[in-house]
């Protein structure tokens, strides 16, 4: 039987962690969406050097472990004089990491729009940017929303990396409570439940949007 007394007695600590996990997720989400969009545009713009920068970013970042990126922000940058608290370092690492995946989702969404759409638009006299805005992007958004939703779910789960550098998130407080009470199983079950409170609605929301977009085709 799950010991709910642990949850009740440490409710404040759980809430602290829960709040920080939400905060880190939301901040990293906004940041990675902006950064990811820029990187995606770098990758498809008809300008070679930008393509290289975009590709380098994506290939480099998504092929190293998240925890290493977070270590760079937490311990690597202080070595060159830039200092972050553990929460900020963790959130920045999370943002930089997720941006690579979001860039890929957005890029592949734009490129999934059939080539004939751009050709039809351009041959009617629209400029490249007009064609993007009125013809390509509205179609790409529908393609991109489901994979973006999945990236957000991953982002929430990945925010647990903050625990590794004492980033005040759910995972961190879970560790704290566990070391105080010498209980592991129950403590982490409650941690898991808090994550589910965040991810299940997200997951359902993504599924709902996906179905609606399919119908709107």
């Amino acid at each position: 039987m799950l010991r709910f007394s642990i949850l009740v007695e440490h409710w404040d600590l759980y809430m602290q962690g829960f709040g920080h996990t939400i905060k880190a997720s939301v901040l990293a989400l906004i940041g990675s969406l902006a950064l990811g969009t820029i990187i995606a545009i770098f990758r498809i713009a008809p300008i070679r050097p930008l393509n290289w920068v975009g590709t380098a970013y994506v290939e480099f970042i998504r092929n190293i472990p998240l925890v290493l990126i977070v270590f760079v922000f937490f311990m690597g940058l202080p070595a060159v004089g830039i200092r972050f608290d553990s929460f900020t370092a963790g959130t920045l690492g999370l943002m930089v990491y997720t941006a690579a995946f979001i860039a890929e989702a957005i890029r592949s969404g734009i490129q999934a729009v059939p080539k004939g759409q751009m050709e039809a638009a351009r041959s009617s006299g629209l400029t490249y940017l007009q064609a993007m805005r009125y013809v390509i992007l509205p179609q790409a958004v529908k393609i991109v929303i489901p994979p973006l939703g999945n990236q957000f779910i991953n982002l929430v789960k990945n925010s647990s990396v903050l625990g590794v550098i004492a980033g005040l998130d759910l995972m961190y407080y879970g560790d704290l409570i566990s070391s105080k009470t010498f209980v592991t199983f129950d403590v982490y079950i409650f941690v898991a439940l808090f994550y589910l409170v965040l991810t299940i609605p997200l997951s359902l929301g993504v599924g709902y949007l996906e179905r609606r977009l399919l119908k709107a085709r």
Binding site: G116, A120, A121, S123, G125, Q139
Partner: peptide, 27 residues
């Protein structure tokens, strides 16, 4: 120069009317 393609290439997210009026309006 108007162009008609084998696979039509109509814009699927727009109505017929919007398909036809896009270029006259924007260009």
């Amino acid at each position: 120069i108007g162009m008609v393609f084998q696979h039509f290439n109509l814009y699927p997210h727009m109505t017929v009317l919007q398909n036809i009026t896009l270029a006259p309006r924007k260009v």
